[in-house]
């Protein structure tokens, strides 16, 4: 079912692109050239041991309440699948490894920092922006809390403070922008004991990912998740199991905001369609008014009504 959905979606996506005649797919925002120096992080799920230190470090770095690090050794949190929420920007989940049950697969979840982010395209006030370094960052001062980014995100990442009336935040990984300003690594990358999170320039990281998948072809499935998904993401994953089974959505290579933006730009191509429509309607109005033989019809009509009202 899921699979069928997807195929149909792509089919309709293709249809959409061809339908938007005026679209010319000149999506201004998303055609911005991406910097060659943009960042990437590789999650090697085979190296990750599920210590969840990244969760702890992330909370500390973002001033979110967190229990003591020693409490993180508790294995029972893995019993249920978790997602990031208002209190944690990243979580690690455990998946069974049927080939060797003693080596379960741990998968960290956080914002993927898409190359062509849907949330940035969607945000009504431009509170989400894609930086030159590749990070997708949320602006507290702009956000109006409409949660359209959450609707748009193909990875279901942005979360919202549903329990706050004043100053609710959209929360998601910001690639530790503040820490990096001080020449520090992102908190999760920094604390990871195994360097299961490999941080560097996206090209270099991708090269390492390719090497590892090739070198240990008997271990890894031949798929670098995030290399092509929704036009590529900053975070990438390699694993010994199909990503479908690791609760990672199956996505195509076309950028998430693609069709939406081309429709949008089709309707609004340099304001030509609205202005044309305006002119057209004006002409019709003028013609019909003349046909009725009275140039001042509308005004006199209003006046007439006015008189009626005064009765």
């Amino acid at each position: 079912m899921k699979n069928l959905n997807r195929r149909d979606f792509f089919k309709s996506a293709a249809l959409g692109v061809s339908l938007t005649v005026l679209g010319t797919s000149k999506a201004k925002g998303s055609d911005k050239m991406l910097s060659d120096d943009r960042l990437g992080i590789l999650v090697d799920t085979d190296v990750c041991v599920g210590c969840r230190h990244c969760e702890w470090a992330c909370r500390v770095a973002h001033n979110l309440p967190t229990p003591d690090l020693d409490n993180y050794s508790d294995n029972s949190v893995f019993k249920e699948y978790r997602r990031p929420d208002a209190g944690s920007l990243t979580v690690v989940n455990k998946f069974e490894n049927e080939k060797n049950p003693l080596l379960p697969i741990h998968v960290k979840v956080q914002c993927m920092h898409c190359e062509r982010p849907a949330c940035v395209s969607a945000c009504i006030v431009g509170a989400l922006t894609k930086g030159d370094d590749g990070s997708v960052v949320w602006d507290d001062d702009k956000c109006i809390g409409c949660r359209y980014c959450m609707v748009a995100c193909p990875f279901q990442i942005p979360t919202y403070d549903y329990d706050r009336s004043i100053d609710p935040h959209i929360r998601k990984c910001d690639l530790c922008t503040d820490r990096r300003k001080n020449d520090e690594l992102p908190a999760c990358v920094n604390i990871c004991p195994n360097e299961a999170l490999l941080f560097g320039k996206r090209d270099a990281v991708l090269a390492v990912a390719k090497t590892r998948v090739k070198r240990k072809s008997d271990v890894y499935v031949n798929h670098i998740y995030g290399e092509h998904e929704v036009g590529g993401t900053s975070w990438m994953y390699i694993a010994r199991k199909s990503f479908d089974k690791l609760n990672m959505p199956h996505l195509a290579a076309n950028p998430a905001p693609g069709i939406s933006e081309s429709i949008q730009h089709g309707i609004f191509a340099y304001f030509v369609p609205p202005v044309t429509l305006y002119a057209l309607l004006g002409t019709i109005m003028w013609i019909t008014k003349r046909r009725s033989g009275d140039d001042d019809e509308l005004i006199s009509d209003e006046e007439e009504k006015g008189k009626g009202g005064k009765l």
Partner: peptide
């Protein structure tokens, strides 16, 4: 605060 790409905008 404008975002021309956004349908919601």
């Amino acid at each position: 605060m404008w975002n021309g790409n956004s349908a919601l905008f």
